[in-house]
């Protein structure tokens, strides 16, 4: 579905990603792990067209993404839930969700509206409230719900667990898992929380200073001694 080959991205003279190759197949959850500054956000921003690669190939469903603007990439079916959620704080929950379906002209918007609200019933109670008044967990739900209103084929999530209470994070990852297994949603997830990510992902990549240091099935990476030491901490064992 998505294929990156030898991608290089620069911020001026600084090389942020170097020789990154990555694939996501339909129906998968793929996690990108790495410390702060490893290049996870740069990678997602490159896929959604906010940054242009200086080298390499970037293909989605047969389209060369390097030719498209971020707006157009949304229309192709890639929707990016950015770090920090980037909601419209003074717009109501309802208006935020409405903006999620901005690019759509099809007849299924109403249907998706009902489905998305059934995922997050708490949002239904807050429809006429400004998004800025929601709690952190509710805001993350709204960010994901808003992205789902665009009817994505591939959902990019950048650090969805950031700033959320541990219980909320657990629920969020359970939801992402269900979204994948029940609705067949394809997810590319950039996370510092390696433990939870490897629990729900099928495959994962580990980014270190802009390069892919490791890749493989989530199961394998969980058992990898280096991943255990660097990303999972001492107390976590496989499974």
């Amino acid at each position: 579905m998505l294929a990156l080959k030898d991608i290089e991205v620069r911020y001026g003279p600084i090389v942020a990603l170097r020789g990154v190759s990555l694939t996501v197949s339909a129906g998968e959850i793929v996690a990108v792990l790495g410390a702060n500054g490893a290049g996870k956000t740069t990678l997602l921003r490159t896929i959604s067209g906010l940054l242009r690669p200086t080298q390499g190939k970037l293909e989605f469903l047969g389209h060369d993404l390097r030719r498209f603007s971020p707006e157009h990439i949304v229309r192709l079916g890639i929707v990016h839930v950015p770090e920090g959620r980037q909601l419209f704080p003074d717009l109501t929950v309802k208006e935020n969700l409405w903006m999620g379906s901005y690019t759509r002209r099809d007849g299924f918007i109403k249907e998706d509206w009902e489905r998305v609200l059934s995922y997050f019933p708490v949002l239904r109670e807050r429809l006429s409230q400004p998004a800025g008044t929601l709690s952190g967990g509710e805001q993350q739900m709204l960010a994901i719900a808003r992205a789902l209103m665009a009817r994505p084929k591939l959902l990019l999530l950048d650090e969805p667990s950031l700033g959320l209470a541990p219980m909320t994070v657990q629920a969020l990852f359970r939801f992402l898992k269900d979204l994948n297994s029940h609705d067949g949603m394809t997810l590319l997830l950039a996370e510092q929380n390696a433990h939870l990510s490897l629990n729900i992902a099928h495959r994962a990549y580990v980014l270190e200073t802009g390069r892919i240091a490791l890749e493989g099935a989530a199961e394998e990476l969980r058992r990898d001694p280096k991943v255990q030491r660097l990303y999972l901490g001492a107390e976590v064992s496989a499974g």
Binding site: L50, V79, P82, R85, F88, D90, L91, W98
Partner: peptide, 19 residues
Amino acid sequence: TAMRAAAQNKLGAQLLGIP
């Protein structure tokens, strides 16, 4: 509504396909 959305958060608007 998209005008208000873009005024409040350009990045958020762009990532939803708002031109």
